Amino acid sequence: MSRPSVWAPKIVALIKGGNSSAAIAQIKVAPTVKDLQDLRKLLIAANLLKPHPNVDAATNDMIAELSAPRLHRSP
């Protein structure tokens, strides 16, 4: 049985605390697409996407990057 990830709530706490630049840095090294989707759900529920358009763009960009097939595979 897998444990729920605590990554998304921590990022929401960074944004609520006013440190959106640190949140964006964490979004850029997000563990999985599922974590990013969970983060977006929490941000939508807390109405934090509209006041932070840069966070909105970063989450969308990283979801697209992590969802895309890899161009190079390691041997």
Rank of each mutant, 00 (worst) to 15 (best):
L39Q: 01
V12T: 13
Q26W: 09
R3F: 13
M1H: 11
A30D: 09
G18F: 14
L66M: 15
E65S: 13
N54Q: 12
R3E: 14
S20D: 11
Q37E: 14
S20Y: 09
D38Y: 04
A13I: 06
P69Q: 05
S67C: 02
A23R: 06
A23Y: 07
K10A: 15
R73H: 13
M62R: 12
A68F: 04
P9S: 09
P69Y: 03
P31R: 11
L36A: 12
A22P: 05
K28T: 07
K16Q: 15
G18T: 12
D35C: 06
K34S: 08
R70N: 03
V6S: 15
V6R: 14
L36W: 04
D38V: 05
V12C: 11
I15Y: 00
N19E: 14
K34W: 00
P75R: 00
V33L: 08
D56I: 00
A22W: 06
E65M: 08
A22C: 06
A64K: 15
I44H: 00
S74I: 07
K41V: 07
K16A: 10
A58V: 01
L39Y: 03
V33G: 02
W7H: 06
R70K: 10
L66I: 02
L14Q: 15
I63E: 05
L49E: 01
V33D: 09
L42V: 02
G17E: 08
N60R: 04
R40E: 04
A13N: 14
L39G: 04
V6Y: 10
N47D: 10
Q26V: 05
R73A: 10
L71Q: 10
A25Q: 14
L66E: 02
K16S: 11
V6Q: 13
P4S: 14
W7T: 08
M62W: 05
D56C: 01
V55T: 02
I63L: 02
I27A: 07
M62Q: 15
K10W: 11
D61G: 04
S20E: 15
H52G: 01
A68I: 01
